[in-house]
Structures are given as structure tokens and as C-alpha cells.
Amino acid sequence: MASLRDIKTRITSTKKTSQITKAMEMVSAAKWNRAVQNAKAFQPYMDKIQEVAASVAAGSKGVNHPMLVSRPIKKTGYLVITSDRGLAGAYNSSVLRHVFQTIKQRHKSQDEYAIIAAGRVGRDFFVKRGINVELEIVGLPDQPSFADITDITGPTVGMFSDGTFDELYMYYNHYVSAIQQDVTERKLLPLTDIAPTGKMVSYEFEPSAEDILEVLLPQYAESLIFGAILDGKASEHAARMSAMKSATDNAKELINSLSLQFNRARQAAITQEITEIVGGAAALE
């Protein structure tokens, strides 16, 4: 059995740890709140651009834009959104496992794909496994604004246009609720699935449908990436919050069982002392 002092030390250190995890939980809760708000603020923009894109794409049959056309696939790009830091439960590992398995299933040689990594954890994962990381962005702020991510959206969309990739998939954790985040795969480019939104309007194009698509489609694709990043951030903070909450709960449980052990050991020591004294007194008589 561990000595009284050992147990005492363990209790103290567990308490310290639980204070830290508790603080991290509260910080994540605040960030999570903001992240959800950001995702909500972005929604009107996304809805609108989706609506316009669907109307324009439907209203301009016969007009072809490179971003709408499926090409024969020589190389596939995977945009993987992870966090920069760990301690977020299964947040990163579930996305990375999913991507890794998908790649293994779909591709035979290394030349058929490349990774675009958003987030340090994802980048390190692929670099360590010798997978080609074409573009990376690390150190995104917790509340990214659109300007922060133009460094990744612009080149990503550019890589499709200049033929580096023939298709582009995006992987991230979709935020469902504070306790549920789902790994989501989304085909980003070519834009073959702009969903019609119901209220289609036939527009007059000024100057022409081609010119509109030229501006609209890159902006649309970039918005999809930005939306995924915001979604991912909300998931990240929610995942970290619940991970830290369960860590705090576990620490509490551990402290309880250690205190019980400590009290038992203390009582045993006292009992032993009394027995010794009584025994000593009896020997004198």
C-alpha cells in the first residue's frame, strides 16, 4: 500500500490538473460561443451566394466555365481541416483516420493525390507519413475572418484552375451540437452539385453570363471553404470543451477515491499506534 505521503502528493497534483482542465473548459466554452455566432453570421452570405449561383448556373445553360466541368481525373486534392492544438478529444483523430483510409482505398500511387492541410495537427500527421502536402496553413486565429483565410482559399481554387488538381475534396468536422460533431466529406470542385434552392429567378446578366460566372464561382468556392473552416472551428471548441469537461470529471472521481484511500491509511496508522501503546502498557503490568 502506498504511504500516506505518496497519496497526499497524488491528491495535490490531481487537484492542480483538474484546476487547469476546468479553466481550459471555461475558455473553450467562451470560444465555442463566439465560433457558433460567427458561423451563424456567415449563413446569410452563404445562402445568398448559393441562391445566386444556382440561378445563374441554371439560367445560363450552354455557357461553360472551367470550374463547372468534370475533367478526367489525374490528381485529386484533399483539403483537410484540423486544429492547431490537441487536447480536443477525438476531434482531429477522427478526421485524419477517415481521410487516411479514404486515400488508401482510392489511390494506388503517391502521384495521384496531394494534401492541403489547414491546421498544424493535420499537417504533422501527413508529413510524418511521407504524404505530399501541397499547401498548408497553420496558426489560424480562433475566430477567423474571411481575410485570414484568403491565403488558403485563393491558392486552393487556383490549383484547380491551373490543373494541379482535377478534383478537390474537403474534410472537416461538421458541428451538430455541443456533444456531437460529424466527420464530413464534401466535393468542392468541380462544382457539379450547386443545389437549386427552390425560388429560382431568371436574371438579366450585365455584361454577360460568362463574366458573372468568372467572378461568382471562385467567390462561391472560397465561401464554401470558409464555411467549412467556421464549422470546423465551432466543432473544435465544442470538442475541446467536452474533452476538458470529462477530464475534470475524471480528476474529481480520482480525487475522491484517493481521499478515501488516504483516510483509510491514516486510520490504519492511528489504529496501529493505539494497539502499540496498549500492547506496551499491557507488557508493563
Binding site: S202, Y203, F205, E206, P207, D211, I212, E214
Partner: peptide, 18 residues
């Protein structure tokens, strides 16, 4: 707009312009 200055009054026909 990219094609020149553009003014919009109420009742304009549906239009998209960069």
C-alpha cells in the same frame, strides 16, 4: 459595376452584375 456606373431604382428587372 465592371461594365460601368450603375444606378438602381425600385422596380428594376432582376439582374446580376460583378
Amino acid at each position: 459595376a465592371q461594365s460601368g456606373d450603375l444606378g438602381v431604382l425600385p422596380g428594376h428587372i432582376p439582374m446580376v452584375a460583378p
